[in-house]
């Protein structure tokens, strides 16, 4: 298996507390991995280390076999590591079409162009319309984001990420805050993600995890305590313990 994304012995402590303690994992193209763990397990720190918003004390992050540990967050995005946000970060005054067009133009290195309008760029608009169409946002493409429903904003987050043509996609709770009636659309969007894309999803909703993931990683007190198939995860005693809370306490001593 050639890994498209790899983390080797990643460590990071805050004031003596190892929040990320020797994490290693590898993903191949097409992987669907869910990262779960109780509150305070170190998921957010892990995401920040991987995306380059936080520097590790030691360890390595690799994309396509190349180390990106010394490369900043922007450089990692350009190398194909794209994330979505737990709380949507969209431009309220802009339209979905503008969001996706900006991502497409940025990906192609044309976001600095001082002339022309994306509506008049047929190849950009074709991609924008196709992507938004796939996610059921075509009719809303020229509305302001502030006027569209939250569930649709979450879908737009995914659209923006996909427009960057990532190799590795980090989805931070893609269904957080979405009303029950809309989660179906999100799940469908997740099921329709490109087959060769490696997806790492951080999620609390176990139903979603079981439907989406073919591999589950459980993080507790900064270390991986389980890495295996969804069917086994609930049977694992260490996982049960972690979710009951006792492991988190034991972790400090470790």
């Amino acid at each position: 298996m050639s890994a498209i994304f790899e983390v080797r012995n990643l460590k990071r402590s805050f004031g003596g507390l190892a929040v990320t303690n020797d994490i290693s994992l590898a993903m191949a193209p097409g992987d669907r991995v869910a990262l779960i763990g109780p509150n305070g397990a170190g998921k957010t720190t892990f995401v920040n280390l991987v995306t380059g918003n936080l520097a590790p004390d030691s360890g390595d992050v690799l994309i396509g076999g190349d180390s990106v540990t010394r490369i900043d967050a922007i450089g990692r995005v350009r190398r194909g590591l794209v994330r979505s946000f737990q709380v949507t970060r969209l431009f309220q005054e802009m339209t979905p079409a503008e969001h996706v067009a900006l991502a497409v133009l940025q990906r192609d290195g044309r976001s600095g162009r001082l002339f022309g309008h994306f509506l008049a760029m047929p190849e950009v608009m074709a991609e924008v319309a196709e992507l938004l169409g796939k996610l059921g946002l075509r009719e809303l493409m020229h509305r302001r984001v502030s006027e569209i429903a939250y569930g649709q904003q979450r879908l737009l987050e995914i659209a923006v990420a996909l427009a960057l043509k990532p190799k590795v996609l980090l989805l931070d709770e893609p269904a957080a805050g979405v009303p029950q009636s809309d989660t179906g659309r999100i799940e469908q969007a997740l099921a329709d993600l490109p087959a060769d894309l490696a997806v790492l999803m951080i999620e609390h909703d176990m139903d979603l995890v079981f439907r989406f993931a073919r591999r589950v990683i459980v993080l507790a007190a900064g270390t991986i305590i389980f890495d295996g198939s969804p069917s086994e995860v609930t049977k694992n005693p260490r996982v049960r313990e972690a979710y009951l809370g006792s492991y988190a306490n034991a972790g400090h001593a470790a």
């Binding site: 995306t51 967050a73 922007i74 995005v77 350009r78 794209v82 994330r83 946000f85 970060r89 969209l90 431009f91 309220q92 005054e93 802009m94 503008e98 067009a101 900006l102 991502a103 133009l105 940025q106 990906r107 044309r110 976001s111 600095g112 162009r113 001082l114 002339f115 022309g116 309008h117 994306f118 923006v160 960057l164």
Partner: peptide
């Protein structure tokens, strides 16, 4: 022309949320 160009759009994005722009791979 400039404020309507891709660059103008990028700048409006930066005004609203620079972190989002960084996550798109732009500085």
């Amino acid at each position: 022309l400039i404020v309507r160009s891709p660059f103008g759009m990028l700048c409006r994005g930066i005004k609203e949320d620079p972190i989002r722009i960084r996550a798109m791979g732009a500085s």
